[in-house]
Amino acid sequence: MTDVDYYEILDVRPTATAAEIKAAYHRAVRSAHPDAGGTAGMFRLVTDAYRTLSDPQARAAYDAGAGRPRPGRPGPGDPGPDTAPAPEPSWGDEVRWEAGGTAEPGRAGRASETASDHAEHAPTWSERWVRTPRGLAAVRWGGWVTAALFVLLTAVLFLLPGWVRPTAAGADVLGSLLDHRAVLTIVVVVYAVAAVFGFLGLLWLPVTLLHVCVLVLVVLGWPLAYWGLAETWERLAFAGVAVVWIVYAAAMTAVPLWQSARFRLDQAT
C-alpha cells in the first residue's frame, strides 16, 4: 500500500473529472520536470499519479483502498502505527539533471522515460504560434475571413461568370455548368457542406486534396484552354478571382490546424 495521496500530488479533489485530472497533470509535470527545476522523484510521482487516476479501473481500485492510504486503518501486512515503513529504494530521490553529469546505476531507464514523456508533451510549432498575438488574431478571425471569401467566390460564379470563363469560349463542360444554375447550385451546396466538415477537421484531408486539384486546374488548365480566347479585361478579372481562390484554399487548410492547436492548449490548461 502506498503512503502518498495521488489526488494531493495532482492538487485535485477526489471527485475530479478525467478532464480536470489531465489538466492538473499538465500543470504539475511542467514544474516537476528536472529541466524546469523539479526532481526526478517528484516527476515520477506525478507520472504515477496520472497513470493511476486517468485509468478508470486503476482509479476505482485506488479509491476502494487498494492503493490509497487510509489513516488509522492499516491494511493487511502494513506496519503498525509504531513501526516506520521501510523506504523504497530511490523513491522520491532529490536528483537533478546536470549538464555533463553521469547517470547513476539504475536511473538510466527512468531518465529515458522522463525524456520521452517530456518530448511527448512538448508543444508543436502550431501550438507555439497560436500563442502569439498574430496566432490569436488568426484563430479569432480566420473563420469569418474564410466564410467571407467563400461568399465572394460564390457570388462571382452566379453573378459574374465571365470572370471565370471567357464569353468567346463556346460550349464546354465549364460553360454548361455555369449556364445551368440548378446544377451549379447543387454543386455549390454539396461543396459547402463538405467544406464545413473540412473546416471542423472531420474531412480536412479530402477537402484539402480537392483544393489542390482545383488549384492545378486554375494555374495550368485555364491559361491553356482560354488564354487565347479571353480579352484583356477577362484575363485580369480571372487573375483576381484566382488570387482570391488561392487565399481561400490556404485559409481552409491552415485555419483548422490552428484551431486544433488552440483546442489542445485549452484542454491542457
Rank of each mutant, 00 (worst) to 15 (best):
F197S: 12
G221D: 05
W233N: 09
V196H: 10
L217S: 15
A230I: 03
V218Y: 10
S176Y: 11
F199S: 13
G221N: 05
E231G: 15
V189Y: 08
V196W: 14
F199C: 04
G201Y: 09
L205V: 15
D172R: 12
V216W: 15
A194E: 07
A195I: 02
V218R: 12
V183N: 04
P206N: 04
L224I: 02
L210D: 11
H180I: 01
W227P: 00
W204N: 08
L229M: 11
H211V: 01
L210K: 09
A225F: 13
Y191I: 04
W204M: 00
A230S: 14
W227M: 12
L202S: 08
D179W: 07
G170D: 10
A192M: 01
G175I: 00
P223E: 02
V173F: 11
L209C: 03
L202W: 14
R235K: 15
A230G: 05
R235H: 14
V193H: 05
A237M: 07
I186F: 10
L205H: 07
P206S: 03
R235I: 08
D172A: 03
W222Y: 15
W222M: 10
L220H: 01
L174W: 15
W204Y: 13
Y226H: 05
V183D: 01
H180E: 13
L200I: 02
G201S: 10
L217V: 05
E231S: 05
W204D: 11
C213R: 14
V183L: 09
L177N: 04
L215W: 13
A182H: 05
L217K: 12
W227T: 03
V190H: 01
V219Y: 08
A171D: 15
C213K: 12
H180M: 00
A171Q: 12
G175R: 07
V218E: 13
E234D: 03
Y226M: 01
R235F: 02
L224G: 08
W227A: 14
L209H: 02
G221W: 04
R235M: 05
Y191F: 14
G228C: 00
A237T: 00
W204C: 00
L236D: 07
W233Q: 08
V218C: 07
R235L: 07
E231D: 11
D179G: 09
P223V: 06
T208L: 11
A194Q: 08
G175W: 03
